[in-house]
Design a protein around this nucleic acid. Structure first.
Lengths: 335, 335
DNA sequence: CTGTTAGCGCGTTCAC
DNA sequence: GTGAACGCGCTAACAG
């Protein structure tokens, strides 16, 4: 902390007014006459005064920052989302506090820690495993769920995962694929669940069968994609195309296949989900479902801010559309 | 904010002691008798009391959080670093405040904003372009530079970039390469500069020439790597190997080459820098210099915490070693 | 439009 | 070992 920073009283003294006036001149300029306002501003400049947020926050019963709860900060998936979030929070004067729920042995407890200590004026939750509504303290700041979470009665910003899956399947179908496999996300993960369900509905609508052994259990990691590749190779009747619930897994899947001498897309078509940056530069470039991650962060940020301003817990949820990005990893099946 | 959360006075009343005792029992348990301490603890449990950090921070003249200044939050390069940072900060009781210097029109001003407002008890700067020492306010909290920044008289945790470059060149040399190109990082970026210099020294030590047109200007992005590929292809006398200052650019470079029908590593060997997760799964898997990003974050975190505890501005800087990861993108040149 | 007064919730002297 | 009183720096309520 700095040695001696000017306080509001110093400004008041220099400007020849009371501290209340200084406070008003800074927070609600309209409430004070222009002449005195100028005097105050001059005094501020002269003294090098900077407002003490801690004191202000104590008085206002706020914290000045918004908390983002991320399941795994190391996952680059969140980079753009957080960037989007940050880009709307800073201009609004909020700090962005980030907590990695994975580091904690009890994330649930951590969430309560933040809530009950009033450490955040608003919370954005990205961890789909986190909240059980019953466990939330009765009193809590505005919360936005930025992950798929259907049974949960809080405002959310979600991506249309089911629709994305459906688009992916339709794309494969249109090119002639009738035998379609899937690499799932982690068990119990809501996003993964939606994508799985979306795929199943699409398959059913197209009258396509999908034997169980064509569904490979993954966990969004590249390694799990590579593991799925091993299973695919061990199959007698291999699907001609695979829809991966994440681009990471698609990378791992393609990589392992190629290292084993299998040609993508000739021997098997692959379609991903997310459109992470690297997949454009793979060989073959990955066809995928784009999900606008920066937008997710921005919307989530706007929502919490609005909720804080309106002092409400409710806000219409948003559904962010997805989009098919066609590249080179999907072709018609061998005949 | 919650409706009515128990304050320290409530606890005091229930325990039948003064607020001062409660405060001590919580902050300096040793100073109070065991019996009263227990009474206080019970009262805390009964009332559901949680300490108000804002009030405590105001009193203690601290903020309770540490600020990370990141040049571009959207860059996945920082994910692991921030995860490492977070993993040491939370156990120590600090919040992690993140600011994206790219969002600001005047990052320099932003830094001062944080410093002068006492919004952070410590600062970790990842933005190599940020600080000019002269511009720092005289009084400021402990700052750690987690980016290469040689001329700067502040504690830093750095990666041995020059050494990494040297290892890369040596590796290429050992396999028989004598014509080695380079894709640089952004102009003026200190990391990029170090890698470039490290390479030049290594080249000189090995008595190797490197014509200017073998050095491609990049900016760490995949697209710039792809652009470098175009330039490489346009060359009459192409280098047989290329050392890229980042894995991202190496991805873009290899991708563009492959899309143009050029074989890596047969036609050109490529070596990267960073060892980002995806490169293991590329085809060919990328040989690269590993830089332990999580460690960088952890060390930086430990350093600020120590500096805060010791109330000092100085701390021995750390140099984190790098390591060669051999994969399949480098082979002996065609003869 | 402005000044006075009274805390926000805690940590910390200084007595006892 | 414990309590009383004060103040961290600011803003909101009430007068005038």
């Amino acid at each position: 902390m700095q040695a001696k920073t000017a306080k509001i009283q110093d400004v008041a003294r220099i400007a020849g007014v009371s501290t209340a006036t200084v406070s008003r001149a800074l927070s609600n300029p309209d409430l004070v006459a222009e002449s005195t306002r100028n005097a105050v501003m001059d005094a501020v400049a002269e003294s090098g005064y900077r407002i003490n947020h801690t004191a202000r926050n104590l008085r206002r019963q706020r914290s000045g920052s918004i908390l983002a709860l991320v399941p795994n900060l190391a996952n680059p998936f969140f980079s753009q989302i957080l960037a989007g979030l940050s880009s709307v929070l800073s201009p609004a004067g909020y700090g962005l506090l980030i907590a990695d729920t994975q580091t904690d042995n009890d994330p649930q407890e951590r969430l309560r820690h933040f809530i009950q200590n009033g450490l955040a004026d608003g919370i954005v939750i990205f961890d789909g495993n986190l909240p059980k509504q019953e466990l939330l303290p009765a009193q809590h700041p505005p919360i936005v769920l930025a992950c798929e979470w259907v049974d949960f009665d809080l405002p959310s910003v979600r991506v249309d995962n089911a629709k994305g899956a459906q688009i992916a399947i339709q794309h494969l179908y249109d090119l002639g694929h009738r035998q379609i496999g899937h690499i799932t996300g982690p068990n119990g993960n809501v996003l993964a669940e939606s994508r799985l369900q979306g795929m199943k509905s699409a398959l059913a609508a197209l009258n396509l069968q999908q034997p169980d052994q064509w569904v490979f259990q993954g966990d969004y990691s590249m390694d799990s994609g590579a593991f799925a590749a091993k299973q695919w190779m061990a199959l007698d009747n291999r699907p001609t195309a695979v829809f991966s619930a994440s681009d990471e897994m698609a990378c791992g899947f393609m990589g392992a296949l190629q290292h084993a001498g299998i040609d993508v897309p000739r021997d098997v078509s692959v379609i991903g989900f997310d459109n992470i940056e690297v997949v454009e530069h793979l060989t073959p470039a990955l066809t995928t479902i784009r999900q606008p991650r920066r937008l997710i962060g921005q919307h989530a940020g706007q929502m919490v801010i609005k909720m804080i301003d309106d002092a409400t817990m409710r806000c219409p949820s948003e559904l962010i559309p997805v989009e098919l990005i066609i590249r080179n990893s999907v072709v018609a099946p061998k005949t």
